[in-house]
Amino acid sequence: MKINHKIQLFMGILFASASFVACNKNNPYPTITPPAQATFSNKTDGSYFVMNDPNSVFKIPVGTTNVTNTTRTITVSVTSPTNAAAGVQYNLPSTSVQIGPGKALDSLPVYGLFSGFSGNRVDTLVFKISGGDIPPSDYNNTYKLVMRKYCTVVPNSFLGNYNNSQDIDNTGSYGPYTAQILSITPTSATTATMVIANFSYEEIAPYPINNITVNLDWTDPANFKTTVPTQVISNSNFYGYGALSVAPNGTGTFSSCDNTFTFQYKLTVSAGSFGNFTTVLAR
């Protein structure tokens, strides 16, 4: 037993010595450098609001995971699930990006064409890193760009007659008739109230109609909203039910490019509601 004890003690000392040598901080260790990859700079999507300006541009960030002293090329492919076409909805001067010496990031410019976005058209472009001097990243090699037109809101441009207005209920559409935006008052940098004459004319005629106030909100450039606050729209004894009011029914939309407005509301009297209605104001 003493002999075995000595052998075990010797082996323990030998193992400890080997471990000490292996962990010596003065011994050189190899440095492992991961291979360079091409990426969209940790971004996977963006929103492009195309303005009526030939210089309107959206720059997609493209980069690498390292820096070198040479120029490297990254190429991309582009597709569109919404059938956006080059030369119609957008221009893409190049499908490659040059990453210069000492740099790890540059951008791919996309030029939206305002004339290609009629009405409420929204398009998506899908960019994918497809080749070049650097292999694509495994985790962010695809970038989705959503494009839609945008016009700066100029409140006073909304004033005037809307000769192609119409009212819509569950039985059909009625009009056209002329509604008029009499005034508009900003309430913040991206909200305002408007006063409208002849609102919901087809639904209420032949009863006299009060001017009403509606709200606009363009805080979200992708979601311009209208709302109709509760208010009396006709003081007459509407079909024997007394005064007629409007009440909100969700939100509508408006376009600062086309000067069109959609309002969602209910027509109510003290006894109840006549249902849900939509009014569209158009020039």
Rank of each mutant, 00 (worst) to 15 (best):
K6Q: 11
F10I: 14
F10E: 14
I13P: 07
S17V: 15
S19M: 15
C23V: 13
N24C: 08
P35Q: 13
Q37K: 14
A38F: 07
K43A: 11
D45S: 15
G46M: 10
V50W: 06
M51I: 10
M51E: 13
D53T: 13
P54C: 01
P54Q: 06
F58P: 01
F58R: 12
I60P: 08
G63S: 06
T65H: 08
N66E: 05
T82L: 02
A85S: 14
A86K: 15
Y90I: 06
N91H: 11
S96F: 09
V97H: 08
G102H: 14
K103H: 15
P109R: 04
V110G: 04
F117H: 07
V126N: 03
F127P: 03
G131C: 03
D133R: 06
P136S: 06
N140P: 05
K144H: 13
K149Y: 09
K149E: 11
K149C: 09
N161G: 08
D167A: 05
Y174P: 03
A179M: 02
A179L: 01
L182S: 14
P186F: 05
A197E: 12
N198G: 15
N198I: 03
N198R: 13
F199E: 02
S200G: 14
E202R: 09
Y207N: 15
I209W: 02
N211Q: 13
N215D: 09
D217T: 00
T219K: 14
K225D: 00
T226S: 10
T227I: 00
V228C: 00
P229Y: 01
Q231L: 10
S236D: 12
N237E: 04
F238T: 09
F238V: 08
A247H: 08
G252T: 02
Y265L: 08
V269S: 11
S273M: 00
S273W: 00
T279C: 07
V280L: 06
A282I: 08
